[in-house]
Design a protein around this nucleic acid. Structure first.
Lengths: 128, 128, 128, 128
DNA sequence: GTGGTCTAGACCACC
DNA sequence: GTGGTCTAGACCACG
Protein backbone atom coordinates (compact mmCIF):
# COMPACT_ATOMS: atom_id res chain seq x y z
CA UNK A 1 0.00 0.00 0.00
CA UNK A 2 2.94 2.23 0.60
CA UNK A 3 4.08 1.95 -2.99
CA UNK A 4 0.80 3.44 -4.07
CA UNK A 5 1.52 6.66 -2.33
CA UNK A 6 3.01 8.25 -5.41
CA UNK A 7 -0.41 8.83 -6.93
CA UNK A 8 -0.99 12.43 -7.65
CA UNK A 9 -3.90 14.51 -8.77
CA UNK A 10 -3.71 17.50 -11.06
CA UNK A 11 -6.61 19.84 -10.41
CA UNK A 12 -6.15 21.86 -13.54
CA UNK A 13 -5.61 19.12 -16.07
CA UNK A 14 -9.09 19.24 -17.50
CA UNK A 15 -9.53 15.63 -16.39
CA UNK A 16 -12.10 15.03 -13.66
CA UNK A 17 -10.54 14.29 -10.31
CA UNK A 18 -12.63 11.18 -9.65
CA UNK A 19 -11.58 9.92 -13.08
CA UNK A 20 -7.91 10.51 -12.34
CA UNK A 21 -8.26 8.37 -9.24
CA UNK A 22 -9.88 5.62 -11.26
CA UNK A 23 -7.13 5.87 -13.85
CA UNK A 24 -4.48 5.59 -11.17
CA UNK A 25 -6.07 2.45 -9.81
CA UNK A 26 -6.30 0.92 -13.26
CA UNK A 27 -2.65 1.72 -13.81
CA UNK A 28 -1.65 0.19 -10.48
CA UNK A 29 -3.52 -2.98 -11.42
CA UNK A 30 -1.82 -3.04 -14.79
CA UNK A 31 1.55 -2.49 -13.11
CA UNK A 32 1.01 -5.32 -10.75
CA UNK A 33 1.25 -2.94 -7.82
CA UNK A 34 -2.29 -3.98 -6.97
CA UNK A 35 -3.30 -7.62 -7.35
CA UNK A 36 -6.46 -9.62 -6.80
CA UNK A 37 -7.44 -9.52 -3.18
CA UNK A 38 -5.22 -6.55 -2.27
CA UNK A 39 -6.74 -3.99 0.03
CA UNK A 40 -7.22 -0.50 -1.31
CA UNK A 41 -6.45 2.53 0.83
CA UNK A 42 -9.33 3.67 3.00
CA UNK A 43 -11.41 6.50 1.64
CA UNK A 44 -10.22 8.61 4.55
CA UNK A 45 -6.58 7.72 3.96
CA UNK A 46 -6.66 8.49 0.26
CA UNK A 47 -8.62 11.62 0.94
CA UNK A 48 -5.87 12.97 3.17
CA UNK A 49 -3.04 11.76 1.02
CA UNK A 50 -4.36 13.26 -2.21
CA UNK A 51 -5.94 16.30 -0.57
CA UNK A 52 -9.26 15.41 -2.13
CA UNK A 53 -12.69 15.43 -0.57
CA UNK A 54 -13.77 11.99 0.73
CA UNK A 55 -16.97 12.17 -1.32
CA UNK A 56 -14.88 12.32 -4.46
CA UNK A 57 -12.88 9.23 -3.50
CA UNK A 58 -16.12 7.49 -2.65
CA UNK A 59 -17.47 8.28 -6.09
CA UNK A 60 -14.41 6.73 -7.72
CA UNK A 61 -14.69 3.59 -5.64
CA UNK A 62 -18.42 3.34 -6.31
CA UNK A 63 -17.84 3.51 -10.04
CA UNK A 64 -15.14 0.85 -9.90
CA UNK A 65 -17.39 -1.35 -7.80
CA UNK A 66 -20.16 -1.05 -10.37
CA UNK A 67 -17.72 -2.27 -13.00
CA UNK A 68 -16.74 -5.18 -10.78
CA UNK A 69 -13.12 -4.08 -10.55
CA UNK A 70 -13.15 -3.73 -6.80
CA UNK A 71 -15.46 -4.91 -4.04
CA UNK A 72 -16.28 -3.18 -0.76
CA UNK A 73 -16.45 -5.15 2.47
CA UNK A 74 -18.59 -3.34 5.00
CA UNK A 75 -16.36 -1.86 7.65
CA UNK A 76 -13.29 -3.53 6.25
CA UNK A 77 -12.35 -1.37 3.31
CA UNK A 78 -12.34 -2.15 -0.40
CA UNK A 79 -10.47 -4.91 -2.21
CA UNK A 80 -9.39 -5.67 -5.73
CA UNK A 81 -12.03 -8.02 -7.02
CA UNK A 82 -11.19 -11.58 -8.07
CA UNK A 83 -12.91 -11.04 -11.38
CA UNK A 84 -10.35 -9.68 -13.77
CA UNK A 85 -11.71 -6.66 -15.67
CA UNK A 86 -8.15 -5.89 -16.72
CA UNK A 87 -7.31 -2.54 -18.22
CA UNK A 88 -8.30 -3.73 -21.67
CA UNK A 89 -4.68 -3.52 -22.78
CA UNK A 90 -4.11 -1.32 -25.78
CA UNK A 91 -2.43 -2.81 -28.81
CA UNK A 92 1.17 -1.65 -29.08
CA UNK A 93 0.20 0.08 -32.29
CA UNK A 94 -2.68 2.01 -30.79
CA UNK A 95 -0.62 2.92 -27.75
CA UNK A 96 2.20 4.29 -29.87
CA UNK A 97 -0.21 6.24 -31.99
CA UNK A 98 -1.63 7.91 -28.90
CA UNK A 99 1.82 8.54 -27.51
CA UNK A 100 2.88 10.15 -30.75
CA UNK A 101 -0.06 12.50 -30.68
CA UNK A 102 0.39 13.21 -27.01
CA UNK A 103 4.05 13.99 -27.29
CA UNK A 104 3.83 16.25 -30.29
CA UNK A 105 1.27 18.19 -28.31
CA UNK A 106 3.56 18.43 -25.32
CA UNK A 107 6.29 19.90 -27.46
CA UNK A 108 4.04 22.49 -29.01
CA UNK A 109 2.57 23.43 -25.66
CA UNK A 110 5.99 23.73 -24.08
CA UNK A 111 7.21 25.93 -26.92
CA UNK A 112 4.21 28.19 -26.60
CA UNK A 113 5.24 28.73 -23.00
CA UNK A 114 8.76 29.71 -23.91
CA UNK A 115 10.34 26.30 -23.29
CA UNK A 116 12.56 24.70 -25.91
CA UNK A 117 12.44 21.04 -26.87
CA UNK A 118 15.89 20.54 -25.35
CA UNK A 119 14.86 22.03 -22.04
CA UNK A 120 11.85 19.76 -22.06
CA UNK A 121 13.94 16.66 -22.70
CA UNK A 122 16.48 17.57 -20.05
CA UNK A 123 13.71 18.09 -17.56
CA UNK A 124 12.23 14.69 -18.28
CA UNK A 125 15.62 12.97 -18.02
CA UNK A 126 16.31 14.58 -14.68
CA UNK A 127 12.90 13.56 -13.48
CA UNK A 128 13.56 9.84 -13.56
CA UNK B 1 -7.12 22.05 -43.93
CA UNK B 2 -8.45 18.73 -45.09
CA UNK B 3 -5.84 16.85 -43.10
CA UNK B 4 -7.22 18.37 -39.95
CA UNK B 5 -10.56 16.74 -40.43
CA UNK B 6 -9.56 13.66 -38.52
CA UNK B 7 -9.84 15.39 -35.16
CA UNK B 8 -12.17 13.56 -32.90
CA UNK B 9 -13.76 14.07 -29.52
CA UNK B 10 -14.30 11.45 -26.87
CA UNK B 11 -17.33 12.49 -24.87
CA UNK B 12 -16.88 9.90 -22.15
CA UNK B 13 -13.18 10.11 -21.47
CA UNK B 14 -13.51 12.39 -18.48
CA UNK B 15 -11.55 15.06 -20.33
CA UNK B 16 -13.42 18.29 -20.99
CA UNK B 17 -14.47 18.75 -24.57
CA UNK B 18 -13.05 22.26 -24.90
CA UNK B 19 -9.73 20.90 -23.59
CA UNK B 20 -9.68 18.08 -26.12
CA UNK B 21 -10.13 20.63 -28.87
CA UNK B 22 -7.25 22.69 -27.52
CA UNK B 23 -5.16 19.55 -27.30
CA UNK B 24 -5.93 18.66 -30.90
CA UNK B 25 -4.76 22.06 -32.02
CA UNK B 26 -1.54 21.83 -30.03
CA UNK B 27 -0.99 18.38 -31.53
CA UNK B 28 -1.48 19.68 -35.03
CA UNK B 29 1.00 22.47 -34.38
CA UNK B 30 3.49 20.00 -32.95
CA UNK B 31 2.96 17.73 -35.94
CA UNK B 32 3.61 20.50 -38.34
CA UNK B 33 0.10 20.07 -39.73
CA UNK B 34 -0.60 23.61 -38.67
CA UNK B 35 2.03 26.29 -39.16
CA UNK B 36 2.27 30.02 -38.55
CA UNK B 37 -0.35 31.87 -40.48
CA UNK B 38 -2.42 28.79 -41.29
CA UNK B 39 -6.15 29.18 -41.09
CA UNK B 40 -8.02 27.14 -38.53
CA UNK B 41 -11.38 25.61 -39.34
CA UNK B 42 -14.26 28.00 -38.85
CA UNK B 43 -16.04 27.75 -35.52
CA UNK B 44 -19.17 26.71 -37.38
CA UNK B 45 -17.31 24.14 -39.46
CA UNK B 46 -15.63 22.51 -36.48
CA UNK B 47 -18.87 22.66 -34.59
CA UNK B 48 -20.63 20.61 -37.26
CA UNK B 49 -17.73 18.27 -37.87
CA UNK B 50 -17.25 17.39 -34.21
CA UNK B 51 -20.92 17.64 -33.27
CA UNK B 52 -20.12 20.14 -30.56
CA UNK B 53 -21.86 23.39 -29.73
CA UNK B 54 -20.27 26.42 -31.43
CA UNK B 55 -19.82 28.16 -28.09
CA UNK B 56 -17.66 25.33 -26.88
CA UNK B 57 -15.39 25.66 -29.90
CA UNK B 58 -15.37 29.40 -29.35
CA UNK B 59 -14.28 28.84 -25.77
CA UNK B 60 -11.35 26.73 -26.93
CA UNK B 61 -10.34 29.29 -29.52
CA UNK B 62 -10.64 32.12 -27.03
CA UNK B 63 -8.42 30.36 -24.51
CA UNK B 64 -5.78 29.81 -27.16
CA UNK B 65 -6.10 33.41 -28.22
CA UNK B 66 -5.52 34.60 -24.65
CA UNK B 67 -2.38 32.50 -24.64
CA UNK B 68 -1.30 34.08 -27.89
CA UNK B 69 -1.28 30.81 -29.79
CA UNK B 70 -3.91 31.80 -32.31
CA UNK B 71 -5.53 35.04 -33.39
CA UNK B 72 -9.09 35.57 -34.54
CA UNK B 73 -9.91 37.97 -37.37
CA UNK B 74 -13.54 39.00 -37.41
CA UNK B 75 -15.24 37.88 -40.57
CA UNK B 76 -12.14 36.06 -41.75
CA UNK B 77 -11.59 33.14 -39.44
CA UNK B 78 -8.87 32.29 -36.95
CA UNK B 79 -5.18 31.87 -37.64
CA UNK B 80 -2.10 30.39 -36.03
CA UNK B 81 -0.06 33.22 -34.55
CA UNK B 82 3.63 33.72 -34.98
CA UNK B 83 5.08 31.36 -32.41
CA UNK B 84 6.51 33.39 -29.71
CA UNK B 85 9.83 33.49 -28.04
CA UNK B 86 7.63 36.24 -26.66
CA UNK B 87 7.41 34.82 -23.18
CA UNK B 88 10.94 36.08 -22.91
CA UNK B 89 13.84 34.39 -21.23
CA UNK B 90 12.61 32.54 -18.19
CA UNK B 91 14.47 32.12 -14.96
CA UNK B 92 15.49 28.53 -14.32
CA UNK B 93 13.08 28.51 -11.41
CA UNK B 94 10.10 29.69 -13.41
CA UNK B 95 10.93 27.35 -16.27
CA UNK B 96 11.00 24.35 -13.96
CA UNK B 97 7.75 25.40 -12.37
CA UNK B 98 6.06 25.50 -15.77
CA UNK B 99 7.56 22.18 -16.75
CA UNK B 100 6.30 20.62 -13.55
CA UNK B 101 2.78 21.84 -14.14
CA UNK B 102 2.82 20.91 -17.79
CA UNK B 103 4.18 17.46 -17.27
CA UNK B 104 1.99 16.49 -14.35
CA UNK B 105 -0.98 17.58 -16.42
CA UNK B 106 0.20 15.46 -19.31
CA UNK B 107 0.52 12.43 -17.05
CA UNK B 108 -3.07 12.86 -15.89
CA UNK B 109 -4.25 13.10 -19.47
CA UNK B 110 -2.17 10.16 -20.62
CA UNK B 111 -3.70 8.00 -17.93
CA UNK B 112 -7.14 9.10 -19.03
CA UNK B 113 -6.28 7.50 -22.37
CA UNK B 114 -5.15 4.27 -20.83
CA UNK B 115 -1.44 5.04 -21.01
CA UNK B 116 0.62 4.44 -17.88
CA UNK B 117 3.30 6.74 -16.59
CA UNK B 118 5.91 4.07 -17.33
CA UNK B 119 4.78 3.67 -20.91
CA UNK B 120 4.96 7.41 -21.34
CA UNK B 121 8.49 7.59 -19.95
CA UNK B 122 9.71 4.64 -21.99
CA UNK B 123 8.30 6.16 -25.12
CA UNK B 124 10.09 9.41 -24.51
CA UNK B 125 13.40 7.66 -23.78
CA UNK B 126 13.18 5.61 -26.97
CA UNK B 127 12.43 8.74 -28.91
CA UNK B 128 15.83 10.29 -28.37
CA UNK C 1 -16.59 42.24 1.32
CA UNK C 2 -19.18 44.90 1.94
CA UNK C 3 -16.91 47.61 0.62
CA UNK C 4 -16.89 45.88 -2.74
CA UNK C 5 -20.57 46.29 -3.22
CA UNK C 6 -20.18 49.62 -4.94
CA UNK C 7 -19.04 48.03 -8.16
CA UNK C 8 -21.18 49.08 -11.04
CA UNK C 9 -21.59 48.22 -14.68
CA UNK C 10 -22.27 50.62 -17.50
CA UNK C 11 -24.17 48.73 -20.15
CA UNK C 12 -23.92 51.42 -22.78
CA UNK C 13 -20.32 52.50 -22.50
CA UNK C 14 -19.13 50.38 -25.37
CA UNK C 15 -16.94 48.40 -22.96
CA UNK C 16 -17.77 44.72 -22.65
CA UNK C 17 -19.47 43.78 -19.42
CA UNK C 18 -17.09 40.93 -18.59
CA UNK C 19 -14.19 43.36 -19.10
CA UNK C 20 -15.71 45.92 -16.76
CA UNK C 21 -15.97 43.25 -14.10
CA UNK C 22 -12.33 42.32 -14.59
CA UNK C 23 -11.42 45.97 -14.42
CA UNK C 24 -13.32 46.40 -11.17
CA UNK C 25 -11.41 43.53 -9.64
CA UNK C 26 -8.08 44.90 -10.78
CA UNK C 27 -9.09 48.26 -9.34
CA UNK C 28 -9.97 46.73 -6.01
CA UNK C 29 -6.63 44.95 -5.91
CA UNK C 30 -4.82 48.16 -6.78
CA UNK C 31 -6.82 50.01 -4.11
CA UNK C 32 -5.91 47.52 -1.51
CA UNK C 33 -9.60 46.70 -1.05
CA UNK C 34 -8.79 43.16 -2.10
CA UNK C 35 -5.63 41.49 -0.86
CA UNK C 36 -4.04 38.07 -1.21
CA UNK C 37 -6.31 35.37 0.08
CA UNK C 38 -9.41 37.55 0.21
CA UNK C 39 -12.63 35.97 -0.91
CA UNK C 40 -14.36 37.38 -3.94
CA UNK C 41 -18.12 37.69 -4.08
CA UNK C 42 -19.81 34.49 -5.19
CA UNK C 43 -20.68 34.30 -8.85
CA UNK C 44 -24.32 34.17 -7.91
CA UNK C 45 -24.02 37.11 -5.52
CA UNK C 46 -22.28 39.33 -8.05
CA UNK C 47 -24.70 38.19 -10.70
CA UNK C 48 -27.65 39.44 -8.65
CA UNK C 49 -25.94 42.56 -7.43
CA UNK C 50 -24.86 43.72 -10.88
CA UNK C 51 -27.88 42.32 -12.71
CA UNK C 52 -25.66 40.36 -15.01
CA UNK C 53 -25.94 36.74 -16.13
CA UNK C 54 -23.93 34.34 -13.93
CA UNK C 55 -22.12 32.98 -16.98
CA UNK C 56 -20.77 36.43 -17.73
CA UNK C 57 -19.37 36.73 -14.22
CA UNK C 58 -17.97 33.22 -14.57
CA UNK C 59 -16.27 34.28 -17.79
CA UNK C 60 -14.59 37.18 -16.01
CA UNK C 61 -13.48 34.99 -13.15
CA UNK C 62 -12.19 32.33 -15.48
CA UNK C 63 -10.12 34.81 -17.46
CA UNK C 64 -8.56 36.10 -14.25
CA UNK C 65 -7.93 32.55 -13.15
CA UNK C 66 -6.13 31.77 -16.40
CA UNK C 67 -3.94 34.80 -15.73
CA UNK C 68 -3.25 33.51 -12.23
CA UNK C 69 -4.80 36.54 -10.55
CA UNK C 70 -7.51 34.65 -8.72
CA UNK C 71 -8.19 30.98 -7.94
CA UNK C 72 -11.56 29.28 -7.72
CA UNK C 73 -12.22 26.61 -5.10
CA UNK C 74 -15.21 24.46 -5.94
CA UNK C 75 -17.91 24.83 -3.38
CA UNK C 76 -15.99 27.49 -1.51
CA UNK C 77 -15.88 30.53 -3.72
CA UNK C 78 -13.03 32.33 -5.47
CA UNK C 79 -9.99 33.92 -3.89
CA UNK C 80 -7.27 36.40 -4.74
CA UNK C 81 -4.12 34.46 -5.54
CA UNK C 82 -0.68 35.19 -4.18
CA UNK C 83 0.47 38.04 -6.38
CA UNK C 84 3.13 36.71 -8.58
CA UNK C 85 6.56 37.78 -9.39
CA UNK C 86 5.81 34.53 -11.13
CA UNK C 87 6.03 35.92 -14.62
CA UNK C 88 9.75 35.86 -13.93
CA UNK C 89 12.25 38.46 -14.89
CA UNK C 90 11.28 39.95 -18.19
CA UNK C 91 13.67 41.07 -20.86
CA UNK C 92 13.60 44.83 -21.35
CA UNK C 93 12.15 44.21 -24.78
CA UNK C 94 9.31 42.04 -23.58
CA UNK C 95 8.57 44.38 -20.68
CA UNK C 96 8.26 47.34 -23.02
CA UNK C 97 6.06 45.35 -25.34
CA UNK C 98 3.67 44.56 -22.49
CA UNK C 99 3.70 48.15 -21.30
CA UNK C 100 2.87 49.33 -24.78
CA UNK C 101 -0.08 47.02 -25.06
CA UNK C 102 -1.29 47.74 -21.57
CA UNK C 103 -1.06 51.46 -21.88
CA UNK C 104 -2.60 51.79 -25.30
CA UNK C 105 -5.46 49.69 -23.99
CA UNK C 106 -5.84 51.96 -21.01
CA UNK C 107 -5.98 55.00 -23.24
CA UNK C 108 -8.80 53.48 -25.25
CA UNK C 109 -10.72 52.72 -22.09
CA UNK C 110 -10.07 56.13 -20.58
CA UNK C 111 -11.49 57.80 -23.68
CA UNK C 112 -14.54 55.57 -23.45
CA UNK C 113 -15.16 57.20 -20.08
CA UNK C 114 -14.78 60.69 -21.38
CA UNK C 115 -11.20 61.18 -20.26
CA UNK C 116 -8.73 62.56 -22.78
CA UNK C 117 -5.21 61.33 -23.22
CA UNK C 118 -3.90 64.69 -21.98
CA UNK C 119 -5.96 64.54 -18.82
CA UNK C 120 -4.69 61.03 -18.20
CA UNK C 121 -1.06 62.08 -18.63
CA UNK C 122 -1.44 65.17 -16.49
CA UNK C 123 -3.03 63.15 -13.74
CA UNK C 124 -0.17 60.70 -13.73
CA UNK C 125 2.44 63.47 -13.67
CA UNK C 126 0.74 65.17 -10.74
CA UNK C 127 0.60 61.90 -8.92
CA UNK C 128 4.31 61.57 -8.49
CA UNK D 1 -6.25 67.23 -40.50
CA UNK D 2 -2.68 66.10 -40.15
CA UNK D 3 -2.70 66.64 -36.40
CA UNK D 4 -5.47 64.10 -36.15
CA UNK D 5 -3.30 61.37 -37.49
CA UNK D 6 -2.16 60.25 -34.06
CA UNK D 7 -5.47 58.51 -33.43
CA UNK D 8 -4.98 54.89 -32.73
CA UNK D 9 -7.24 51.92 -32.26
CA UNK D 10 -6.67 49.08 -29.83
CA UNK D 11 -8.36 45.95 -31.08
CA UNK D 12 -8.07 44.08 -27.83
CA UNK D 13 -9.12 46.74 -25.39
CA UNK D 14 -12.61 45.43 -24.89
CA UNK D 15 -13.92 48.73 -26.26
CA UNK D 16 -15.76 48.55 -29.54
CA UNK D 17 -13.77 49.89 -32.44
CA UNK D 18 -16.50 52.16 -33.74
CA UNK D 19 -16.81 53.55 -30.22
CA UNK D 20 -13.10 54.25 -30.00
CA UNK D 21 -13.34 56.25 -33.18
CA UNK D 22 -16.23 58.26 -31.78
CA UNK D 23 -14.30 58.82 -28.57
CA UNK D 24 -11.30 60.05 -30.51
CA UNK D 25 -13.44 62.56 -32.36
CA UNK D 26 -15.03 63.79 -29.16
CA UNK D 27 -11.58 64.23 -27.68
CA UNK D 28 -10.33 66.13 -30.71
CA UNK D 29 -13.30 68.47 -30.42
CA UNK D 30 -12.61 68.93 -26.73
CA UNK D 31 -8.95 69.60 -27.48
CA UNK D 32 -9.78 72.19 -30.04
CA UNK D 33 -8.06 70.14 -32.69
CA UNK D 34 -11.39 69.98 -34.44
CA UNK D 35 -13.60 73.06 -34.51
CA UNK D 36 -16.98 73.94 -35.96
CA UNK D 37 -16.92 73.66 -39.71
CA UNK D 38 -13.70 71.65 -39.86
CA UNK D 39 -13.64 68.82 -42.32
CA UNK D 40 -13.28 65.30 -40.99
CA UNK D 41 -11.05 62.78 -42.74
CA UNK D 42 -12.74 60.85 -45.51
CA UNK D 43 -14.05 57.42 -44.58
CA UNK D 44 -11.54 55.96 -46.99
CA UNK D 45 -8.66 57.99 -45.55
CA UNK D 46 -9.42 57.07 -41.95
CA UNK D 47 -10.00 53.50 -42.96
CA UNK D 48 -6.50 53.23 -44.36
CA UNK D 49 -4.87 55.22 -41.62
CA UNK D 50 -6.39 53.23 -38.78
CA UNK D 51 -6.43 49.91 -40.62
CA UNK D 52 -10.12 49.59 -39.99
CA UNK D 53 -12.84 48.50 -42.38
CA UNK D 54 -14.62 51.44 -44.05
CA UNK D 55 -17.99 50.14 -42.87
CA UNK D 56 -16.85 50.56 -39.30
CA UNK D 57 -15.80 54.17 -39.86
CA UNK D 58 -19.10 54.76 -41.60
CA UNK D 59 -20.94 53.45 -38.57
CA UNK D 60 -19.10 55.85 -36.30
CA UNK D 61 -19.84 58.83 -38.54
CA UNK D 62 -23.48 57.81 -38.84
CA UNK D 63 -23.84 57.66 -35.07
CA UNK D 64 -22.24 61.09 -34.66
CA UNK D 65 -24.46 62.48 -37.37
CA UNK D 66 -27.55 61.18 -35.59
CA UNK D 67 -26.41 63.04 -32.49
CA UNK D 68 -25.91 66.19 -34.51
CA UNK D 69 -22.21 66.37 -33.77
CA UNK D 70 -21.16 66.18 -37.38
CA UNK D 71 -22.93 66.65 -40.68
CA UNK D 72 -22.26 64.90 -43.96
CA UNK D 73 -22.24 66.81 -47.24
CA UNK D 74 -22.94 64.52 -50.18
CA UNK D 75 -19.74 63.96 -52.06
CA UNK D 76 -17.84 66.48 -49.97
CA UNK D 77 -17.07 64.61 -46.80
CA UNK D 78 -18.26 65.23 -43.26
CA UNK D 79 -17.92 68.36 -41.17
CA UNK D 80 -18.09 69.30 -37.54
CA UNK D 81 -21.58 70.60 -37.04
CA UNK D 82 -22.25 74.15 -35.91
CA UNK D 83 -24.46 72.91 -33.11
CA UNK D 84 -22.28 72.39 -30.12
CA UNK D 85 -22.98 69.00 -28.49
CA UNK D 86 -19.79 69.47 -26.55
CA UNK D 87 -18.24 66.52 -24.75
CA UNK D 88 -20.43 67.15 -21.75
CA UNK D 89 -17.37 68.15 -19.75
CA UNK D 90 -16.92 66.11 -16.62
CA UNK D 91 -16.63 67.94 -13.35
CA UNK D 92 -13.05 68.01 -12.09
CA UNK D 93 -14.20 65.91 -9.19
CA UNK D 94 -15.80 63.22 -11.28
CA UNK D 95 -12.86 63.16 -13.63
CA UNK D 96 -10.37 62.69 -10.79
CA UNK D 97 -12.48 59.97 -9.28
CA UNK D 98 -12.44 58.06 -12.56
CA UNK D 99 -8.74 58.65 -12.99
CA UNK D 100 -8.08 57.33 -9.51
CA UNK D 101 -9.96 54.16 -10.23
CA UNK D 102 -8.40 53.78 -13.61
CA UNK D 103 -4.87 54.23 -12.39
CA UNK D 104 -5.09 51.90 -9.44
CA UNK D 105 -6.30 49.31 -11.92
CA UNK D 106 -3.37 49.96 -14.23
CA UNK D 107 -0.94 49.41 -11.39
CA UNK D 108 -2.53 46.13 -10.34
CA UNK D 109 -2.72 44.91 -13.90
CA UNK D 110 0.90 45.82 -14.55
CA UNK D 111 2.00 44.02 -11.41
CA UNK D 112 0.10 40.92 -12.38
CA UNK D 113 2.13 40.90 -15.58
CA UNK D 114 5.41 41.12 -13.75
CA UNK D 115 5.91 44.86 -14.11
CA UNK D 116 6.73 46.99 -11.07
CA UNK D 117 5.18 50.36 -10.34
CA UNK D 118 8.53 52.01 -10.93
CA UNK D 119 8.96 50.43 -14.32
CA UNK D 120 5.46 51.57 -15.17
CA UNK D 121 6.16 55.16 -14.16
CA UNK D 122 9.46 55.26 -16.02
CA UNK D 123 7.76 53.97 -19.11
CA UNK D 124 5.12 56.66 -18.93
CA UNK D 125 7.69 59.40 -18.40
CA UNK D 126 9.71 58.26 -21.38
CA UNK D 127 6.56 58.15 -23.46
CA UNK D 128 5.94 61.88 -23.37
C1' DG E 1 -24.22 25.42 -2.44
C1' DT E 2 -20.20 26.70 -5.45
C1' DG E 3 -17.58 26.78 -9.49
C1' DG E 4 -17.51 24.90 -14.19
C1' DT E 5 -18.97 22.78 -18.60
C1' DC E 6 -22.12 22.45 -22.23
C1' DT E 7 -26.14 23.56 -24.99
C1' DA E 8 -29.20 26.72 -27.39
C1' DG E 9 -30.18 30.75 -29.40
C1' DA E 10 -30.32 35.94 -29.85
C1' DC E 11 -27.76 39.78 -31.11
C1' DC E 12 -23.72 42.52 -32.34
C1' DA E 13 -19.16 44.18 -34.34
C1' DC E 14 -16.54 43.76 -38.10
C1' DC E 15 -15.11 42.19 -42.95
C1' DG F 1 -20.62 35.25 -43.08
C1' DT F 2 -17.22 35.23 -39.08
C1' DG F 3 -15.82 35.80 -34.51
C1' DG F 4 -17.57 37.40 -30.02
C1' DT F 5 -20.73 38.75 -26.20
C1' DC F 6 -24.63 37.89 -23.51
C1' DT F 7 -28.59 35.37 -21.80
C1' DA F 8 -30.94 31.30 -20.13
C1' DG F 9 -31.00 27.11 -18.24
C1' DA F 10 -29.56 22.09 -17.66
C1' DC F 11 -26.29 19.30 -15.62
C1' DC F 12 -22.03 17.95 -13.30
C1' DA F 13 -17.84 17.79 -10.12
C1' DC F 14 -16.53 18.91 -5.83
C1' DG F 15 -16.85 20.37 -0.81
Amino acid sequence: METISKWSINFSSGVHVYKQIINNIYEAIGNGELKEGDKLPTIKELSEQLQVNPNTIAKSYRELELKGVIAGKRGNGSFISAHQAKTAKLTAEERDSRLNKLFSRVIAEAKSEGITEDELMNYIMDRR
